[in-house]
């Protein structure tokens, strides 16, 4: 139902000869591919084989892990300009503001709901209270959370249910209006109902950004994704969506 013929898609991310090493172990082996704009690409495959690692290649979050090495070229098109995100000139915090990420377990910071969503704005140096309040509301609406929390924005975020926490984290990633959203098994810590809400949300978010997600659940992937690719033995193999 969400399928779009692949030939009409415009690439958003291109990967050339990407290899990734964890210690002496080759996690990704000379991968070259591209990911289409406003598509949901799902990466599936057995666990522990580097799917999450592949996601962190696009926001360079792996660089904090010791003993890890990468080679190859990764470019993302922001507007009409292709940027090599591993070029020395690349501004890392700015990159991560345009490439949002949501993790497997919800990770709200120990502060209020509103402060959590506003946090990235403050990091980016936005200070106008009016602007912050407006963007927080937009992000919470986009994450289907506004109606549930609008009366208790100052409540502690860790008091929310698991599904709400995860949507809060999605709202927090959305508040900077990222062009790419990386999701690392976003529903695996949630029950079916909460997972359903998030699946629905992802399909809506496609209009705003390009989504790469990692998932175990094949039925979920088939409901949501435009393209399914399997990571096996360090290579990507296309599967029917």
């Amino acid at each position: 139902m969400n399928r779009t013929p692949p030939q009409t898609e415009r690439p958003k991310i291109t990967v050339e000869h990407l290899s990734f090493f964890y210690g002496g172990f080759r996690v990704l082996d000379d991968i070259s591919t591209s990911f289409g704009e406003h598509r949901i690409t799902a990466i599936v495959g057995p666990s522990g084989k580097g799917k999450s690692t592949l996601l962190t290649v696009f926001n360079r979050l792996w660089e904090d892990i010791p003993g890890v090495r990468m080679s190859g070229r990764v470019r993302i098109r922001f507007g009409d300009r292709w940027e090599d995100i591993y070029a020395p000139s690349c501004d890392l915090p700015a990159l991560r503001r345009r490439v949002g990420m949501v993790f497997q377990t919800p990770n709200p910071l120990p502060m209020s709901i509103a402060k959590n969503v506003a946090f990235p704005l403050r990091l980016a140096g936005r200070r106008k209270p009016g602007e912050i309040a407006r963007r927080v509301e937009n992000a919470l609406r986009a994450a289907f959370l506004w109606e549930e929390v609008k009366d208790r924005l100052d409540a502690d975020a860790t008091q929310l249910s698991g599904g709400q926490q995860q949507r809060l984290c999605i709202a927090r990633a959305l508040v900077l209006e990222p062009e790419v959203l990386l999701l690392d098994e976003p529903t695996s810590s949630l029950d079916t109902a909460a997972a359903g809400v998030i699946e629905n949300l992802l399909i809506h978010l496609k209009r705003r950004c390009t989504i790469l997600m990692v998932s175990h659940y094949l039925d979920q992937v088939h409901r949501v994704a435009d393209r399914i690719t399997e990571l096996a033995d360090g290579r990507l193999v296309e599967r029917a969506a």
């Binding site: 979050l61 993790f103 910071l109 990091l123």
Partner: peptide
């Protein structure tokens, strides 16, 4: 590790991560 990489994933610089998330913790 989960808390440690939250802020960087949202575009925090290293010092922002240290001063706003890690040090309070």
């Amino acid at each position: 590790a989960g808390l440690r990489r939250t802020a960087p994933a949202l575009g925090a610089t290293r010092w922002q991560n240290v001063s706003r998330v890690l040090l309070p913790r």
